Amino acid sequence: MRAYHPLAAALLFGLSSLADAQPALPTNAMHALTWRHIGPFRAGRTKSAVGVPQQPNVFYMAVTNGGVWKTTDYGRTWNPIMDDQPTGSIGAVEVAPSDPNIVYVGSGEGLQRPDLSVGNGMYRSADAGRTWTRLGLRDGQQIPRIAVDPVNPDRLFVAVLGHPYGPNSERGIYRSVNGGRSFERVLYKDENTGGADVVLSPDDPNTVYAVLWEARQGPWENAAWSGKNSGLFKSTDGGATWTPLAGGLPTTADGLGRFGIGIAPSNPRVLYVTATAGDKSGIYRSDDAGATWRRTTT
């Protein structure tokens, strides 16, 4: 099974939606721009990154077995901010859109690969990463995504993938309405199927899209497999009820693996999905809030 990197997918979604929202530039407008490495200078994978809209100089990044790093000078220098915590394996970092001091971190990278690392639950900072409180979901082991309500920093959804090598019950999509002091599981299949992604519609935080992924790592390298319970789901009542989405997306008959999902900020009815599904792998687009889909690239 070929894996898609969630951060790469998120960047692609962001660039696509930005292109839709902005007027066309002259073809030579960016010819003088070049890429450069802004650090931090370390080996390994970068699993998640987020900026702070109210503070354009501030960014957080999460790396596997490297903790969380923060820059306050547009990436010129980076500082580790979670080295005093009992895990360095990070799957997700998110800043509350309405309060940049509140930062949530999900531990456990959630990439389902031979050299993965697991975590020990959720963390929260109320002072922009200076101090941390350890929360729950400690047996989830892999937390690949967090979605925070745009107006209520205490309301969040968490995708919990679960144990990579065996079954466990703490999997699926969880919701908290009290800043992570407690979590309620709102979408669940079984002890083999976990949550791989979750996003909120930018115009309605009660509209939630989530991905479940039935996956397992084997006892030897490259022995991974995906099962029949993987899929994309939608809720329009804040996670109380869920509807599976299909309408042109790959199915288990196609060898479905993992979905990743993003929403165009300029038009919440436009959705993009990355799919691993054999010869039907690729990027899919919906223009009607998930009712129907078409593949845009392989």
Score class of each variant (00 low, 15 high):
104 Y>L: 10
105 V>M: 04
105 V>R: 01
106 G>I: 07
106 G>C: 06
108 G>W: 01
108 G>H: 01
110 G>S: 09
110 G>C: 07
111 L>V: 06
112 Q>Y: 12
113 R>I: 11
113 R>N: 15
113 R>P: 00
114 P>D: 14
114 P>Q: 12
114 P>L: 08
114 P>V: 07
114 P>M: 06
115 D>Y: 13
115 D>H: 14
117 S>Y: 04
118 V>C: 13
118 V>H: 09
119 G>V: 01
119 G>L: 02
120 N>G: 08
121 G>F: 04
121 G>C: 07
122 M>E: 08
124 R>I: 03
125 S>T: 10
126 A>P: 10
127 D>W: 06
128 A>Y: 09
129 G>D: 09
130 R>C: 06
132 W>N: 10
132 W>L: 08
133 T>S: 15
133 T>F: 12
134 R>F: 01
134 R>S: 15
134 R>M: 12
135 L>F: 03
136 G>N: 09
136 G>W: 01
137 L>E: 07
139 D>L: 14
139 D>E: 14
142 Q>H: 13
142 Q>Y: 00
144 P>V: 09
144 P>G: 07
149 D>E: 02
152 N>W: 06
152 N>M: 05
152 N>Q: 11
152 N>F: 03
153 P>Y: 10
154 D>S: 13
155 R>M: 12
156 L>T: 02
156 L>D: 06
157 F>N: 00
157 F>R: 00
157 F>L: 06
159 A>S: 07
160 V>K: 00
161 L>P: 01
162 G>D: 11
163 H>K: 12
163 H>E: 14
164 P>H: 09
164 P>F: 03
165 Y>K: 13
165 Y>H: 13
166 G>P: 05
167 P>F: 04
167 P>H: 09
168 N>W: 01
169 S>W: 15
170 E>R: 02
170 E>D: 10
171 R>Y: 05
171 R>L: 05
172 G>R: 00
172 G>C: 08
177 V>Y: 12
177 V>D: 15
180 G>T: 01
180 G>D: 08
181 R>K: 14
181 R>P: 00
182 S>Y: 00
182 S>A: 13
183 F>E: 06
184 E>Q: 15
185 R>T: 04
186 V>C: 08
188 Y>R: 05
188 Y>H: 12
189 K>F: 15
189 K>L: 13
190 D>R: 04
190 D>A: 03
192 N>I: 10
192 N>V: 10
